[in-house]
Deep mutational scan, measured.
Amino acid sequence: MAAGGDHGSPDSYRSPLASRYASPEMCFVFSDRYKFRTWRQLWLWLAEAEQTLGLPITDEQIQEMKSNLENIDFKMAAEEEKRLRHDVMAHVHTFGHCCPKAAGIIHLGATSCYVGDNTDLIILRNALDLLLPKLARVISRLADFAKERASLPTLGFTHFQPAQLTTVGKRCCLWIQDLCMDLQNLKRVRDDLRFRGVKGTTGTQASFLQLFEGDDHKVEQLDKMVTEKAGFKRAFIITGQTYTRKVDIEVLSVLASLGASVHKICTDIRLLANLKEMEEPFEKQQIGSSAMPYKRNPMRSERCCSLARHLMTLVMDPLQTASVQWFERTLDDSANRRICLAEAFLTADTILNTLQNISEGLVVYPKVIERRIRQELPFMATENIIMAMVKAGGSRQDCHEKIRVLSQQAASVVKQEGGDNDLIERIQVDAYFSPIHSQLDHLLDPSSFTGRASQQVQRFLEEEVYPLLKPYESVMKVKAELCL
C-alpha cells in the first residue's frame, strides 16, 4: 500500500493539533497551500530580480507567473513527485505547466533550498508574528487579574506546605514575570531571523556568478533584492546548502521555554482548584465526569500541561538535527523538520489560546482563602504575639514557653481530632496574655502579614508589564474561544 493518505478522510490519521486544537490561522501558515504558494512567490521574486539585473526574462513571463501564483494543481504535483521522487522539481514542473512561456526560467540558477529553506524562514517569521500578540493578550488578562487582587491576602506555599502570606495578585505576578520573559525572547528570536537568500547549491553562489558572467556586484544585488522582497532586513552571508540548523534550535528553545512557563502556571491553577481557592472557567453544560456528576475538573489547565510537556520535548529534535548536518548538509534534517517545526508552533498556539481562555474567566473564592488563612495564621502570628507581650512588660522566655504549650495543644486538636485551630481562643482565655487581649485582632490582621506584596504588584505592572504590552494595544480586544 502506498504511503500517505487522504487526510480529510475519517479513515486516515490526522494530527489532533490540526484537527482538534490549533487555530485556523496557525494551521494555514503550515498548510501545503501556504507552503507551495510561497515557493511560487519566491520563484517570481527571483525572476523579477534577475530581470532587473539584466537576464533575458520578459515582462510577459513575469506576468504569467504572477497570474498563476494561486493556480496550484495539487493532484498534478503529487503525481509528479511520485514520478520524480523530488518535491521541488515536482512543483517546478507543475508551475511550468500553467506558465508555459515562463517554464524555462522558473528556478533559474537556484537549488531546492532556495524555495525550501527560504519558505521555512518566512513561515517561522509569520508563525512567530501570530504567537506574539496571543502571548501579549494572556499577559494582559493576567495583569488585569493581578491588579484587581493585588491586596487580597492568601496563604503562600513553599514545598506545598503553608508559608508566609502573600497576595493573590502577587502570586499571579510570578506567572506574568515568566511570560514577559517569554514574550521578550519570542520577539528577540523573531527579529534575529535572517533570510537564507540566493546562495546556490553549497552556499557559494557559483551558479549565479556564472549567470551574471562573473559580476560579483550583481550577485550581491540579486541576494539583497530577493531578501528585501521577502520582507527581511538581512540575509546570511555564510550558508551551506541550507541555512544553519542552529536557527531551528533557537526558535524551538524559546517555544519550549514558553511551554515550561505555561505548565507551571496551569499546575498552580490545578492545585488551587483542589484547594477550592480558584477555578478555571466551567461552562453551564460542561460535564466533569461521566460517573461523578459533582466533579469540576480543571480540564483546560490539564490540557495545557499535557501539550506543554510535548512542546518542551520537541527542542531535542533540532538539537540532534543540527549535530548531524555533515559538511554542507545531509538530508537527516528533512523529514524531522517537516514534523517538529509545525508541531512546535501548533502546540504553542494551542496552549496560548487555551491559557487566554482560562485567564479571561478565572474565578476566585475569597471566603475559602480566608478560612485557610484562619487555619494557619495563628501559628504564624506567634512571633508577633511574643513581641507584643514583651512590649507590655512580659518575659520573652516565659511567653515563648506559654505559646509553645498552647500551640501544641491547638495542633493536637487540628491533627488528632480534625478540629479547627483554636490557638487564639486559648490565648484569649489565658490570664497571662490579658495585657494584649485587646491587640489580638490587630495582630491577626492578614494584611499585616503580606509585606509589600501589593506595592510590588503595582510597581511591576507599571514599570515592566504595561510598557512591554504597549506595541500590542491594537490587538488586545480579541477574545479566545474554545470549541473543545
Rank of each mutant, 00 (worst) to 15 (best):
R329H: 07
N336L: 13
K82L: 15
T201Q: 03
A308M: 02
S323T: 05
G156P: 03
C399R: 02
R371E: 00
C266A: 10
I403S: 05
L130M: 10
T94F: 07
N274E: 09
A342V: 15
L377F: 04
D144E: 15
V262Y: 02
L46T: 00
I386F: 03
K295C: 01
R20H: 00
Y466P: 07
G419V: 07
Y13K: 08
E250Y: 12
F282A: 11
Y243P: 10
S67E: 14
S438N: 10
I287W: 02
K276F: 08
E50L: 08
A90E: 01
P281A: 11
D178V: 05
T450A: 08
S257V: 07
P100Y: 11
W45L: 07
S261Q: 03
F74W: 11
S334T: 14
R372P: 05
K402T: 05
S112K: 03
H442Q: 12
M181R: 07
R300S: 07
G156V: 01
L121D: 01
A388K: 05
V405S: 13
E213Y: 07
L319E: 01
V219P: 05
V364F: 05
E417R: 11
E328I: 04
L183Q: 09
H107Y: 02
P133L: 15
L183C: 10
R137F: 09
E425L: 10
V115T: 13
E148L: 10
F212Q: 06
F379S: 04
L252N: 13
L121A: 11
K264L: 04
K187F: 09
S438V: 11
L42C: 12
L17V: 15
G116I: 05
Q428H: 14
W45R: 04
I106C: 07
L341G: 14
P133R: 15
K391S: 13
G54N: 11
S448F: 12
E48S: 07
K35L: 11
Q177P: 02
T227E: 02
S67D: 11
S323W: 00
M181G: 09
C172R: 03
R234V: 09
A77W: 07
R37L: 15
A348E: 07
F160R: 04
E481T: 15
D317H: 04
P16V: 14
R459W: 10
I265G: 05
D191N: 11
D248S: 01
G451I: 05
R296L: 08
L17R: 01
G156C: 07
A291I: 03
P24G: 11
I139V: 13
V138T: 09
L128C: 12
T347G: 12
Q325F: 11
L84N: 10
R245P: 01
V226G: 01
E70W: 11
A127P: 00
A235K: 08
E228P: 04
V262H: 02
E279N: 00
A90H: 04
I249F: 09
E213W: 12
D430F: 04
L362W: 05
Q286P: 02
T244E: 00
Q408G: 15
G4V: 15
H263Q: 05
P10G: 10
L222F: 07
A291E: 03
I373G: 04
R83Q: 13
E220D: 12
H437T: 10
N353H: 05
L44R: 06
S448I: 15
E370C: 08
Q428M: 12
G214T: 10
L55Q: 15
P446I: 05
G203P: 02
V315I: 13
C483W: 08
Q41E: 13
C340Q: 02
F157T: 03
P24C: 10
S306A: 08
I358C: 15
Y365N: 14
R374M: 08
V390W: 05
P467V: 14
G54T: 05
D333T: 02
E283V: 08
N421R: 04
L469N: 05
L130Q: 08
T382Q: 08
S359K: 08
I57H: 09
H107R: 00
D349M: 09
A49H: 02
D420Y: 05
G394W: 08
E25V: 12
F460L: 07
E401Q: 14
H86Q: 07
R188W: 05
H310G: 08
C266D: 05
L142W: 12
K246C: 03
C266G: 10
I139T: 11
E283S: 15
H107Q: 02
T202W: 01
T354W: 04
K233M: 12
C113V: 12
I436Q: 02
M65G: 04
T94P: 01
R149N: 11
V429P: 03
H400R: 03
F195I: 10
G259V: 01
Y21N: 04
R396E: 02
D422N: 09
V168Y: 06
Q184T: 14
N353W: 06
C483V: 15
Q210L: 07
E60I: 10
A3P: 05
G203M: 01
R452M: 12
E302S: 03
Q439W: 06
Q408F: 09
K35H: 13
T330F: 01
A273P: 03
C304Q: 05
P298W: 01
Q51R: 10
T52I: 10
A273I: 07
A344W: 01
F433T: 07
V414L: 07
A411K: 10
A47D: 02
I358L: 15
C173S: 11
V254P: 09
A22D: 06
D87E: 13
